[in-house]
Write a protein that binds this DNA or RNA. Structure first.
Length: 953
DNA sequence: GAGCACTGC
């Protein structure tokens, strides 16, 4: 055990080091008498745990009267059977202003981005492929109605005569708002309105709401009549039949749990399928199968134009219809044009042959040859530019790093200066990959007095910056003032800024990727795809003709992928697998193989294995009782397990805060330049807990406390918190409590009910529950660098497989010097620059012993003369312990395991009566955990022990 | 010495 070593293997970005990982640093013993007494108490308690029954409690969502999706179809009433309510053609041009002033908008808004007349001037249908339309004269109303009628008839014909169709069209063609209405209106005209229930899914919450509002508006109704929406935590259902429901993809998938054949819908429209997000790809597999079982069901897939054919092929070569759209023309410029117009001379690329790490894919030599070929192509292309571009530009192109390993911010700076001084008014939107580029470019601009004036307004935009919630992003700059927005891809789909006329496409995008062979998620900047570029370009043509500057050559553009890799190939699959089992879709592998692109066998195997280790699946992929609970909770499996334990151990509210923050996002926003101050605030909020998760609880509780005195605004401001996010987290917590009530783990759905919070103030226990949820995500602190250097480095920690990683600088533990326990549990580990733990909680030994993996007792040789007893969890987490205490811990653990298994199989409210077996066991466990036990072992002084280890690095 | 973006009756 002492010399457990890991193979010395150098893998991509992962240092596998060889050194002992098993030596304990903590000796257990202080609680021997305590545990013995507690075990005695258990043995004298009742042997049959009483099962408190929850009877008569109504289950939310089932049979709730008046809910849209459970109501039986009923006859159509007369007031809906004429189309005269629709007046979308005469709608004034207010849509954009209204939505943007309310905060977020979405690219879906583009479907009605322009004046109604313009938008509808190109409604003529084409069965052929895409055709770029330009603005024509505006037809008169009569002609418009006629054109629309033709358009509608064609779509209806196709829908009627096919089970599935694909409709493609660029943003601006109106497909999202019009197609659902065509279908409904057709049924109403036929006097069959009551037979029509259209569900239209959107990938984002905001699109679902804003499209529903727009469509209701076009029909001259308020929401909840013939049009409604349903997103998580917020629903306004339309009437039960003769109606259209816009919902998120996730909501529709949730419906499948109670209605596997989707009888609540006659038509299902899946919008934005070209985005290839995990949930739409999953839904498509299900719908494809469902068409066999429900011959009456109509499926309409809606996509952008590029590659729309592949969806038609996937759906049994179903017909494909393309709708032309309207957008203002956008002039495009490439790197060669930009160098020519700015006269900027980029730095030469590194001359020495760069060592090329292509993350293990492809062999070194092949890659070298590939590079040489690329180089040759570039030089040939440069020669072809002669005569068309100045020699200076051509020379620059041939010498610079066209791969843009590091985004050239000087180039962007020069380009912005060029636009500001030479081009007409209009906001500039710059796309860069991430925080550091936003920060650096912002500094670069502010350094220049040219930009640091009242005439220029520079706005950084990032999901974690407070500007995402501020109106100024959307506000049109006053005349003579230039607005410059520096943004991540948040401005590509989620946030729409109307007055943008100039777009600078930095060419790179940060993308999450999962590599099962390294069991590692990464987040790295890659080249954009053609569809990203197209979307970015479109951001320039919303209000008038615009210009788009791509920071890559026109040669490079030809090598860009059409689309980003679908998410299903880039993500962990645990949740997907659980859903497949919950929806009884058969064995995982064959089911997933039906996807448009199937994930690797390795990724699937890893997901299934993890679920088996979690006791969610058995060895035959059958859902175990725990798996059923986890699948029903709207969080990842680890957070789900945490919630179950939180309910059982009477600390529901704090644990819900953690689960909500981990599965959605934490509530912090950080203004540019205030990073360190924000770190300090978080550290204060952690109150010495050495836990990011406890810090989140304290931040949330502080906010709720200040709400009572209406000082929450001040509180958020001081602590860099977003009130909007906190409200969402609060609602999520309520939802979790509801779900736990349905699963019968708590009696009522109030997350703050005292009965489920008897131990909420016991932070040692809350940490233990966090540990129970996050296990086996355990890391061991290996080295705390000395604090003398100017920039103290974060502690180095090891994962179980020996990977050496850092604690991310955002974590409250990143500047921690003192770890009484060397063990951390974490939720997220990700490779960015290096490999980082993004959140962690230091845990004491007992939570690991009680909630971790298998416990073994063994002897360990300390030196030639001495051996010591120890207990070890999962063969790597070791503590010195006498044989007696080892046995006591094992006995107690056995009691706990039995209790937990029973609880999971037969859910019930916790019985705290210490005379019951359940009460006695829980009391014992809580008692031991509460006395955090950090007895240091004298002869294994941790720093000495690891002092000589540098040679391995 | 640093955090793409979504989402769940």
């Amino acid at each position: 055990m002492y010399d457990v070593t890991v193979d010395v293997t150098v893998k991509r970005h992962v240092k596998m080091l060889s050194y002992p990982i098993g030596k304990p640093v903590i000796t257990l013993g202080g609680q021997e008498a305590n545990i013995r007494r507690l075990l005695d108490d258990i043995n004298t308690s009742d042997n049959v745990p009483p099962q408190p029954e929850i009877s008569g409690a109504p289950i939310a969502g089932q049979g709730a009267e008046g809910s849209w999706y459970d109501e039986a179809p009923r006859p159509q009433t007369a007031r809906h059977d004429h189309r005269s309510h629709r007046h979308r053609n005469t709608r004034p041009n207010t849509a954009i202003g209204n939505r943007t002033s309310s905060g977020y908008t979405d690219n879906m808004d583009e479907d009605y981005a322009h004046d109604g007349n313009k938008a509808r001037s190109n409604v003529a249908m084409e069965m052929t492929d895409m055709k770029e339309e330009t603005m024509e004269g505006v037809p008169d109303l009569e002609e418009l109605i006629k054109m629309e009628k033709e358009e509608m008839d064609q779509i209806i014909d196709m829908v009627e005569s096919n089970k599935a169709i694909v409709i493609s069209g660029e943003t601006g063609c109106g497909k999202t708002t019009q197609v659902p209405q065509f279908i409904l209106d057709h049924y109403i005209e036929q006097g069959k309105g009551s037979e029509c229930r259209v569900i239209c899914t959107q990938p984002r919450r905001i699109s679902a709401v804003s499209v529903a509002e727009r469509v209701a508006d076009e029909r001259g109704e308020s929401i909840s009549n013939s049009v409604g929406y349903s997103i998580r935590l917020e629903s306004k259902f339309p009437r039960s039949t003769g109606s259209i429901l816009f919902c998120t993809t996730g909501v529709l998938l949730k419906y499948l749990e109670s209605d596997p054949q989707l009888y609540r819908a006659t038509h299902i429209i899946v919008d934005e399928i070209h985005e290839r997000d995990l949930l739409s790809d999953f839904l498509l597999i299900i719908l494809k199968d469902l068409l066999q079982k429900r011959p009456d069901l109509k499926v309409i897939l809606m996509s952008a134009t590029l590659n729309a054919e592949q969806f038609s092929e996937y759906f049994y070569n179903c017909p494909h219809l393309s709708i032309p759209g309207f957008t203002y023309p956008v002039q495009e410029y490439y790197l060669e044009n930009i160098l020519e117009m700015t006269g900027y001379i980029p730095p030469d690329k590194d001359q020495g042959r760069k060592k090329f790490h292509d993350r293990g894919r492809g062999k070194w030599r092949e890659r070298e040859e590939e590079l040489e070929e690329e180089e040759w192509n570039v030089q040939a292309w440069c020669r072809s530019l002669e005569g068309k571009f100045s020699p200076k530009t051509i020379d620059s192109l041939s010498r610079m790093d066209l791969e843009m390993k590091i985004l050239d911010l000087e180039l962007i700076y020069n380009l912005i200066r060029h636009i500001v001084s030479r081009e007409d008014d209009g906001a500039i939107l710059v796309f860069v990959p991430g925080w550091s580029e936003i920060s650096d470019l912002h500094k670069l601009l502010m350094k220049d007095r040219f930009f640091n004036t009242d005439k220029v307004r520079v706005i950084p935009l990032h999901s974690m910056m407070p500007t995402v919630n501020q109106k100024e992003v959307f506000d049109r700059a006053p005349p003579g003032v230039r607005k410059i927005v520096i943004a991540t891809n948040i401005a590509e789909t989620s946030i729409t800024i109307d007055d943008v006329v100039y777009v600078i496409n930095g060419g790179k995008i940060k993308m999450k990727d999962f590599e099962p062979e390294y069991n590692m998620t990464s987040l790295e900047a890659r080249w954009v795809s053609k569809s990203n570029a197209k979307q970015r370009r479109g951001r320039a043509g919303r209000v008038q003709p615009g210009k788009c500057y791509h920071l890559y050559t026109s040669l490079k553009e030809t090598t860009l992928e059409d689309y980003q890799r679908p998410e299903i190939l880039r993500t962990r699959l645990e949740e997907l697998c659980l859903q497949i089992k919950l929806l009884k879709l058969g064995r995982i592998e064959p089911f997933v193989s039906k996807a448009m692109q199937r994930p690797s066998t390795e990724a699937l195997r890893m997901a299934i294995e993890n679920l088996q280790n979690l006791q969610a699946l058995d060895e035959n992929e059958n859902l175990l009782p725990l798996g059923v609970h986890l699948a029903k909770m709207p969080v990842d499996p680890h957070s789900g397990k945490m919630l179950l334990f939180g309910a059982m151990f009477g600390c529901l509210s704090p644990v819900c805060t953690v689960a909500a923050s981990l599965s959605f996002k934490d509530a912090f926003v950080i203004p540019l330049g205030k990073e360190k101050l924000a770190d300090m605030r978080r550290k204060e909020l952690s109150e010495g807990s050495k836990s990011d998760h406890i810090m989140l609880i304290n931040a949330f509780d502080g906010w709720e406390h200040h709400r009572r005195t209406r000082t929450d605004g001040q509180y958020c401001w001081e602590n860099f918190l977003s009130g909007n996010t906190l409200k969402l987290l609060q609602n999520m917590k309520k939802q979790f409590a509801e779900v736990l009530r349905e699963l019968k783990f708590v009696r009522n759905g109030d997350v703050n009910d005292p009965s489920v919070n008897v131990n909420s103030a016991n932070m040692a226990l809350v940490k233990a529950v966090i540990c129970a949820g996050l296990y086996p995500n355990v890391a061991r602190v290996m080295k705390v660098p000395s604090g003398r250097s100017k920039f103290p480095k974060p502690p180095k920690v090891n994962l179980k497989d020996g990977q050496r990683v850092s604690i991310h600088l955002k974590s409250v533990n990143s500047d921690e010097k003192d770890f009484p326990s060397k063990w951390l549990v974490y939720h997220k580990v990700m490779k960015t620059n290096g490999v980082n733990l993004f959140d962690c909680t230091m845990v004491s030994p007992y939570p690991l012993l009680f909630f971790g993996g298998e416990i073994k007792s063994s002897m360990m040789k300390v030196n030639d003369h001495e051996e010591r007893h120890m207990v070890t969890v999962d063969d790597w987490i070791s503590f010195y312990a006498s044989p007696t205490i080892g046995q006591l811990v094992k006995d107690l653990r056995k009691q706990l395991d039995r209790l937990l298994e029973d609880k999971i199989t037969r859910p019930g409210v916790t019985n705290w009566d210490p005379k019951s077996k359940e009460g006695a066991v829980l009391k014992a466990i809580i008692d031991v955990i509460t006395q955090e036990d950090f007895d240091q072992d004298d002869d294994s002084d941790w720093n000495n022990y690891h002092g000589g280890r540098d040679r391995y690095r």
